Amino acid sequence: MTEALLEVRGLRTWFETPRGTVRAVDGVDLTVGRGEILGLVGESGSGKSITGFSLLGLVDPPGRVIEGEIRFHGEDLRAASPRRLRDLRGNRIAMIFQDPMMTLNPVLRIGTQMIETVQAHARVSKAEARAMARDALGQVGIPHPDERIDAYPHEFSGGMRQRVAIAIALLHKPDLIIADEPTTALDVTIQSQILSEMQALTRDMGLGMIWISHDLGVVGQLAHKMAVMYAGRIVERGSVDEVLDTPRHPYTRGLIDSLPMENDRGQPLRQIPGNAPPPLNRPEGCPFRPRCAHATDACLAEPEETGTPDRAWRCFHPLGSRLTEVPA
């Protein structure tokens, strides 16, 4: 059994607006173990990033976590004081953002920012902090770290800036990293290099990771487990191989079918009909019902999760069942 670093049960994060309540995250369960990468996938607006921010207590008003358990090494983070959360952020739990400039200050040298980050959580000298920063830069593949540590962010390419952001996340050898689509804006070659390095770091350091993405190809290459999110809920979860090879939820099947590699050359790309429901006007029952070819009157009710602790889905007519089989 993999040691559980993070256990999330029934997480709900809502935003109270003048037009009504936005249920951005509406009952999410997640488990991440040591040395394990969980891919959290779904369309834009499905609630993936808000889930990540909720875990770190970074949701600003009018949003708030209204319900659920968030346990890190067994500690209830929802009951933690603001000071305790500050101690954990960037130390035992780190976050990598899609845009590295959300991490980097453009007017400060890389070394200055990394040294400040080290000394915020560890009582070490400036020389020791600089050595830790230099080693972290080398760890993520930045050449000549002794020289590059004195550069400014604008002197790095986009891929190198993202590596710096990853190095900052690794400074204190955290137990858990939450990565919010950190390779989306990078070219394929750089993306592949970073994915390979993240796999190696996770394996060698024994840390856990949540990799948030809308790209099934990236998650399939990187992660061990996958959770598919739609309209604020996890609609399917399991090992990467199980979910990609035998999807049970029609939404998961639609995401897979929309990949270019799953379409015939020269033919239009297959896509899921319609659009994700607006947060303030979600349909009754299963939120995927208006876009689903298998929907029946039963789907007017909210489906409960079915399956096992390691492999589950939310659907009244899961793929492979009698009602969804297509005649030969």
Rank of each mutant, 00 (worst) to 15 (best):
M1T: 10
A4R: 13
A4F: 04
R9M: 11
L11W: 06
R12S: 11
R12A: 10
T13A: 15
T13V: 14
E16V: 12
R19Y: 11
R19L: 13
R19T: 11
V22E: 08
R23S: 07
V25R: 01
D29G: 00
V32C: 04
V32E: 07
G33D: 02
R34V: 07
E36K: 02
E36I: 05
E36P: 03
V41D: 00
S44T: 13
G45M: 05
G45I: 01
K48H: 07
K48Y: 01
I50N: 04
G52F: 01
G52I: 04
S54I: 03
L56V: 07
G57R: 02
G57T: 06
L58V: 04
L58K: 09
P61D: 10
P62S: 12
G63S: 02
V65K: 09
E69D: 14
E69Y: 01
R71D: 13
G74Y: 05
E75S: 05
E75Y: 07
A79W: 01
R83M: 08
L85R: 08
R86Q: 11
N91E: 15
F97C: 07
D99N: 09
T103V: 14
N105S: 12
P106K: 14
P106R: 12
G111T: 06
G111E: 11
E116A: 12
Q119P: 04
Q119G: 11
S125Y: 12
K126A: 14
R130M: 15
R130P: 10
R130S: 13
A131K: 00
M132G: 12
M132W: 11
D135C: 00
L137F: 04
Q139V: 00
V140N: 02
H144Q: 15
H144I: 10
E147D: 14
D150H: 10
D150F: 09
A151Q: 15
A151L: 13
Y152T: 10
E155W: 08
S157T: 06
G159N: 00
A165W: 03
I168H: 03
L170F: 05
P174H: 04
D175W: 02
I178S: 00
V188C: 09
I190T: 06
Q191M: 06
S192R: 13
Q199A: 01
A200N: 07
T202W: 07
R203L: 09
M205Y: 02
G208V: 01
W211A: 06
I212P: 07
H214L: 09
D215H: 01
G217N: 10
V218I: 11
G220M: 06
L222A: 00
Y230A: 05
Y230H: 03
G232Y: 02
G238E: 01
P247D: 14
H249D: 15
R253S: 11
P260V: 01
D264N: 14
G266Q: 09
Q267D: 09
L269D: 11
A276T: 14
P277D: 09
P287Y: 08
P287S: 12
R289K: 13
C292F: 00
T296H: 09
E302G: 06
R311C: 03
W313R: 07
W313H: 12
W313S: 06
C315A: 10
C315I: 12
F316P: 03
L319D: 10
G320I: 03
P327R: 04
A328N: 13
